[in-house]
Amino acid sequence: MQLAPGVHRLGDDRVAFLLVVVDDGITLVDAGLPGHRRDLRRALRELGRSEADVRGIVLTHGDSDHIGFAEALRTERGVPVYVHTADARRTRGDDAPPPTARPAWRLPAALAFVATAIAKGGRTRRVGEVREVVDGDVLPLPGSPVVVGMPGHSPGSIAVHLPAHRVVAVGDALTTRHVLTGHAHPQLAPFTDDLAAAEASLDRLAAIDADVVVPGHGPAWLGTPRDLVAAVRA
């Protein structure tokens, strides 16, 4: 799905990641599940590009359904993987996510998410080496992604702002469709480490000037971050 010129969402409403395509190369925002690499290759072929054009992967955080094929591209293609300093240990597998409150769930939605995990699954490999970033960094990658710190879902959760494309990817800082209940409205994501911090981070998202907001789970929001934050808080 093309969200803006040069910005494509791959995956689906259950698990999604971004492909940012410019003349001098490609940036990925997140890496889905391991099996999503097939979707990546298919999309690249359709665009007349290949994995050799990928210059870097920017992770919104270090959870397994966002780092899927990142280590494969790093080791096989030399693609650098960027993640916030506060999530570096989680991404490498040095630290496990802390326990969180058990989220609500409904059987049809939960089964659909499990089906996606199986279909796009395989062994998720932790990322052996990462390049650490912090809030405010402008990365030397196609699209010049800007790091916006969004702690809460995890300590190092970030939004990735693509100013030239007027798109911002938010990972699990929020969701527009709960993966376990199917409730289709803007809300904080399940399995969040610190709900109070995640809610406070929404102020940072609301200040971003963009026309499209892309969560890691749920449909893209075709509107401003400010309006999306208002919908979460309504």
Rank of each mutant, 00 (worst) to 15 (best):
R89W: 01
H8P: 00
L107H: 09
H153T: 05
E199Q: 14
V22N: 10
I118D: 00
D193F: 14
T75A: 14
L107C: 07
G35W: 08
T116R: 10
A231C: 11
E129C: 03
A210S: 15
A234C: 07
G62V: 11
P151V: 09
V83Y: 13
G122Q: 04
D23T: 11
G68A: 05
E71D: 15
V15P: 01
A52H: 12
F191E: 07
T60N: 13
D65E: 10
L111P: 05
D172A: 12
P142F: 11
A117E: 08
D24W: 12
I26Y: 03
R45E: 15
H36D: 15
V81S: 08
V79Y: 12
A104G: 12
D87Q: 05
S154V: 01
A72C: 10
L40G: 03
P5M: 11
P97A: 08
V58H: 05
A86D: 15
L222I: 11
A196H: 13
P98W: 07
P186D: 05
A230N: 12
A198K: 03
A16H: 02
D209Q: 15
S144R: 15
R177S: 03
G121D: 03
A70H: 09
R49T: 06
P151G: 09
G156Q: 06
L40M: 04
H61L: 00
V20P: 04
A119G: 10
M1Y: 08
F17T: 10
I67V: 15
H178G: 02
V167Y: 13
V127W: 08
A169W: 00
A184H: 10
H84G: 07
H66D: 07
H185F: 13
E51L: 09
H84F: 07
G121V: 02
P140K: 05
S154Q: 14
A206N: 07
H66E: 09
L228F: 14
A207M: 04
T181Y: 00
G25Q: 06
G149W: 09
G128I: 02
A184D: 15
T176P: 02
D203C: 01
G156V: 09
R166W: 09
L28E: 05
V160S: 02
D30M: 00
A234H: 15
R233A: 11
I158A: 08
D209H: 12
E51R: 13
R90M: 14
A159V: 09
R38Y: 06
T224D: 12
E129S: 14
V147R: 01
Q2S: 14
V160N: 01
E76I: 00
D227L: 00
G149R: 13
V81Y: 10
A109E: 05
A159R: 07
H161D: 15
L205E: 09
D227W: 00
R204I: 12
L222M: 14
F69P: 09
I26P: 02
L188D: 11
G223K: 05
A159H: 07
F69I: 04
E71H: 07
Q187R: 14
S201Y: 08
